[in-house]
């Protein structure tokens, strides 16, 4: 049973990672990161259930709090750059060479 959750989590994580790499809208890229974090949460809870301990469920709460903090920082940075560039694309008018 746990291995099914494992497969689902890996699929979710991969969708997030691929989306992160190919999408160009900063908001969508950011949502992909959130998807990756949620894949981790699913895995924590599934393994927690498998081992019969609560540590993993507790970890999921920690991750949610961290994700919320990350949203606050991330959205403010994205809003800031959107107002400067009038676009949410991560490619529009780049100055840094990479």
């Amino acid at each position: 049973m746990t291995s099914l959750y494992l497969i689902l989590a890996v699929i979710l994580f991969s969708i997030g990672l691929i989306g992160f790499l190919i999408r160009r809208n900063a908001l969508v890229v950011f949502m992909c990161v959130e998807l990756m974090l949620n894949a981790c949460n699913l895995l924590f809870v599934a393994f927690s259930n498998h081992h019969g301990i609560l540590d993993g469920q507790m970890a999921a709460f920690f991750v949610m709090v961290v994700a919320a903090a990350e949203v606050v920082i991330g959205l403010s940075i994205i809003v800031m750059i959107t107002r400067t560039r009038r676009s949410t694309s991560v490619d529009a008018g780049t100055v840094l060479k990479g």
Partner: peptide, 28 residues
């Protein structure tokens, strides 16, 4: 500066997510 901030944030958030996935694996 703002562009650097956005880049650092997006790449950093991805790196943390990857690290967290590894943590979940080791926990498992």
């Amino acid at each position: 500066s703002q562009e650097a901030s956005l880049k650092y944030f997006l790449l950093g958030a991805m790196a943390s997510a990857i690290l967290l996935f590894g943590v979940a694996f080791l926990f498992g």
